[in-house]
Write a protein that binds this DNA or RNA. Structure first.
Length: 879
RNA sequence: GGGUGUGUAGCUCAGGUGGUUAGAGCGUUACGUUGACAUCGUAAAGGUCGCAAGUUCGAGUCUUGCCACACCCACCA
């Protein structure tokens, strides 16, 4: 046993710097197309280049890193491909904001100038997030890093667009789309978030041209009435039956519009009549199509009123609304105002209210794409974890609308569509057409718009590997193995990758999707700037280290629910890492002088065999949990194994053998310590890569490989059931004795006593007597077959296979021991009564399986035995 | 309105196919500081398993209903 010179604590900063460079320089993150290995591929969910690392990234990256590190150690050719997303709308907004501060608008710069600035911006900030990802210890293959606006990926995007257009899967149409007046672009359905808002329901009376009848409508948006082209009622509604087909006049604009009947109108809501504004409401737009109604735009792309009524022209919506309500009041057409809670669509990027607007946009036709995408999940070619999310996925896919993919932005993949400047004919192709249009004109102009950023990320799993080129990477690493990402982008990204991959490559993009929840604060609230409750992972790393951050994120994690995160978890993490450090220091000292070659398996002691049994169990179960993406459970099990089984139990049991003179099984103890310690470092490495690598490098066994590329441990077939049971008994015995000592308030705490043991397992107790001496504070352990000669004044600790008697000497009084024994007795009596009641129940005895009944009978016998032993002690003491 | 979850100790979470003393860590309390670690040790207290019915010899576990919370979806203007 040596004293090892080691730092008192693990110092994360230095180790992180050292090991990350080491791994990276040695090329351990790099994946090779090794024909003798099986590929295992994970594609990073590419973070935005606008991004600063937040706790959500830290979680996703940690989970991916855990999986890829395990797979690498298991001998797969493990590729974790990193990269970033240009994030068109988010990035463009940031750049516009930056320009605004300079007093320049994007129009001032023009498209070219703006894009130059955007690329400058990307160069400056795009690398930031990558640097931060590295701080977490992420073992990505950085040589394969991609960006969604790379040349290769852009080619893929262009090819997909052109091919799909030629197949009729992409079309241009004038339709109602969600428009964000703030970002000044259309957005897809998925990009709209609905939020509850307190509003009003305004009741407006529309009169007949001759005032002989009237109809009242209810609306939350009175300003859109300027564009009303009908009033709809339910055909079954008798109140309005006589009016159907007649007309009413829209106040203010004095437009005569028809009253139409359609079953979509809810009779119970509002007045039962609804005004139809096809230009600004999805429902109304559909009705307008159906009934051939005129579409009259009221609001423009800036969210300002069009000059339908001159005095409102150019006003913003809320101003115009107030004016129109006032005017209706004056006209006497406003009949009622009710407060009303309703959902309002907001842009997921800027959170401003979205305006449905009619405009010409490009769409992806979803129907034919959705079907196979549903099929591959149904037939398990893709497995979604947790499984229940499959239902969410089906529901979305089955009800999917066409995907609006054009964006009125400059930062992104420009749509490869060209229009004849004379007749507007469309040409879709790789470059500006050189031919003459059928109308005789030969000047063309490219579409100004770019594609939805998700259009390019939908191709990520294969475009990053070189598709559409038939690259070696693509054929080796694709389809990828697992996608690990947040549940929030199931529709944005996961679903779209699935149908895109099937369409473009004919293969699934990945075989498994594991989705985790959102990281919330300790109270379960979303982390937000306004609440200032965010946790900055970079601060955590500088204060506690990346390992501690990773530990704290995985601790208590499950994939079903959101994660409640608080810095308290770091306390546990820090303590654990410290314990690991110190136990390693001890083990290194214990094995320093050991010649493992002289280790004799025959000389393994019961506690060694117990430990080996436990080790085999933990290797199996941790591996299984990780394969199931049960990161939290895997870590929990490792924690318990390491802290309780290894440190508290095994190391403590083995200390006498290591330190006492003249012990013959020192080598076997040392070897077992080494074996378990090494396995612990291996199993913990995916979770805590830095501290484990650091410790492994200090492990004095002359290994030549760093931990990161060492083989993942596998359980072997060693089985020692008898030794295992015996040690379990010993543990129970020790705990009971300690318990009694505390209860009897033995002073001083460490005072040793004689322990008499009566047992049927004399040989075993004799073997472990040194352990008993140390852990049960025995001065000496006297083993005898019967109770003869044991002092009457002794504390008794009864168990089924062995009983211990601790002589009082002058430490405790008889009365206290009698009281304690009476408590024990009462406990046994209660147990016996319970079991007897059950066995007296004929229904139980006749209907329960025989093993269960026998089990209870055995239990009854055991309790009776313990009770009589207790009674015997009481009788003796009372004498 | 529909869907999907969640609800177990003060807190964070475990609890295959129902089996009778419901577990762990943190926190709390008491005692302690012993050969790696006070970022430690020994022990204790702490739970009518959201509520109510039902199925069963037996329910934290299965069924139904309800309550609370969360998330997702949806065209009640």
């Amino acid at each position: 046993m040596q004293q090892i010179e080691m730092e008192k604590y693990f110092e994360p900063a230095a180790a992180e710097e050292k090991w990350y460079h080491f791994w990276s320089d040695k090329g351990y993150f790099k994946a090779h197309r090794d024909p003798n290995k099986t590929p295992y591929t994970i594609m990073i969910p590419p973070p935005n280049i606008t991004g600063k690392l937040h706790i959500g990234h830290a979680l996703t990256m940690t989970l991916q890193d855990i999986t890829i590190r395990m797979k690498r150690m298991q001998g797969y050719s493990a590729l974790w491909l990193p990269g970033t997303d240009h994030a068109s709308i988010a990035t463009e907004a940031k750049i516009v904001e930056m320009l605004r501060k300079e007093g320049v608008s994007k129009e001032d710069l023009g498209r070219e100038g703006f894009l130059r600035r955007a690329w400058d911006w990307k160069k400056e900030y795009g690398g930031t997030i990558i640097k931060q990802l590295k701080k977490l210890g992420s073992s990505c293959d950085w040589d394969r890093e991609r960006f969604t606006l790379d040349e290769g990926l852009s080619n893929a995007v262009q090819k997909v667009f052109i091919d799909m257009y030629n197949e009729g899967l992409i079309y241009r149409g004038e339709r109602l789309v969600n428009w964000c007046p703030c970002c000044h672009t259309s957005i897809s359905d998925a990009e709209v978030e609905y939020e509850e808002e307190q509003g009003h329901l305004w009741y407006i009376r529309y009169d007949a041209p001759d005032k002989s009848y009237s109809v009242e409508v209810a609306t939350t948006r009175p300003e859109t009435m300027l564009g009303d082209t009908a009033v709809a009622v339910n055909p079954k509604d008798e109140r309005f039956a006589h009016m159907i087909g007649k007309t009413v006049v829209v106040p203010i604009v004095n437009r005569e519009i028809p009253i139409i009947a359609d079953p979509f109108v809810e009779m119970e809501f509002g007045t039962g009549a609804v005004k139809i504004t096809p230009a600004h409401d999805f429902n109304d737009f559909a009705a307008g199509k159906k009934f051939g109604l005129e579409i009259i735009k009221v609001i423009d792309e800036d969210g300002k009123m069009l000059p339908l009524v001159p005095k409102y022209a150019g006003q913003d919506i809320l101003t115009a609304r107030a004016g129109i309500v006032e005017e209706l009041k004056e006209l006497g057409n406003l009949t009622k105002i009710e407060p009303y809670m309703h959902k309002v669509g907001k842009c997921y990027r800027c959170h401003n209210t979205v305006e449905p607007l009619v405009s010409k946009q490009w769409f992806v036709k979803m129907e034919t794409l959705a079907k196979p995408a549903i099929e591959v999940v149904k037939n398990k070619e893709i497995k979604i974890i947790p499984e229940r999310d499959e239902k969410v996925y089906y529901h979305w896919m089955e009800n999917i609308q066409d995907w609006c993919v054009s964006r009125q932005l400059w930062w992104g993949h420009r749509i490869p569509a060209y229009y004849c400047t004379k007749c507007g004919a469309i040409h879709v192709g790789e470059s500006m057409p050189t031919h003459t249009c059928s109308c005789g004109n030969n000047t063309w102009v490219q579409d100004d718009d770019t594609l939805d950023t998700w259009f390019s990320s939908a191709l990520w799993p294969f475009s990053t590997l070189g598709w559409p080129e038939k690259t070696e990477d693509l054929s080796y690493f694709y389809p990828t193995s697992t996608l690990i990402t947040g549940r929030d982008i199931l529709f944005f990204w996961v679903a779209r990758m699935i149908f895109s991959a099937l369409k473009q490559t004919g293969k699934v993009p990945f075989k498994t999707v594991a989705m985790h929840g959102l990281v919330r604060d300790a109270l379960g609230r979303k982390m937000s700037k306004s609440l200032n409750n965010g946790v900055d992972p970079l601060e955590v790393i500088s204060e506690f280290g990346a390992d501690a951050l990773r530990f704290s994120l995985v601790q208590g994690l499950n994939l079903e629910t959101d994660i409640k995160y608080s810095k308290d978890k770091l306390t546990v993490a820090k303590a654990f890492i410290n314990k690991l450090w110190n136990s390693a220091k001890f083990v290194f000292g214990a094995i320093a002088d050991t010649d493992f070659k002289s280790c004799d398996p025959q000389k393994l002691q019961p506690e060694d065999k117990w430990m080996i049994t436990k080790l085999n169990e933990i290797i199996t179960s941790v591996t299984a949990e990780l394969e199931k993406f049960e990161y939290g459970l895997a870590l929990q099990k490792l924690y318990d194994f390491f802290w309780n089984d290894f440190c508290s139990t095994y190391i403590e049991m083995v200390k006498p053998r290591l330190m006492d003179e003249g012990v013959e099984t020192k080598t076997e103890a040392a070897h077992t310590l080494y074996r378990v310690m090494k396995a612990v470092l291996l199993l913990l490495n995916p979770f805590l890569p830095f501290v484990t690598e650091e410790l492994y490098s200090k492990l004095p066994d002359g290994h030549d490989k760093p931990l990161i590329i060492t083989d993942w441990p596998t359980a072997n077939a060693e089985k020692y059931p008898e030794d295992f049971e015996n040690i379990e008994l010993l543990k129970y015995f020790i705990t009971s004795i300690r318990n009694v000592r505390v209860n009897m308030n033995i002073q001083p705490n460490r005072k040793t006593t004689l322990i008499f043991v009566t047992t049927s397992k004399g040989d075993f107790i004799r073997t472990v007597a040194p352990i008993l001496k140390k852990l049960a504070f025995a001065k000496d352990v006297i083993i005898q077959p019967t109770k003869d000669g044991i002092p009457v004044n002794a504390i008794a600790v009864e168990s089924l296979a062995a009983s211990a008697y601790i002589p009082f000497e002058d430490l405790v009084d008889v009365a206290a021991e009698i009281e304690r024994l009476n408590t024990e007795k009462a406990k046994y009596q209660e147990m016996i009564a319970r079991v007897e009641r059950q066995l007296a129940n004929e229904q139980f005895v006749s209907k329960a399986p025989k093993e269960k009944v026998d089990e209870q009978r055995q239990k009854l016998a055991d309790y009776q035995k313990l009770l009589s032993a207790t009674d015997e002690r009481l009788a003796m003491l009372k004498k």
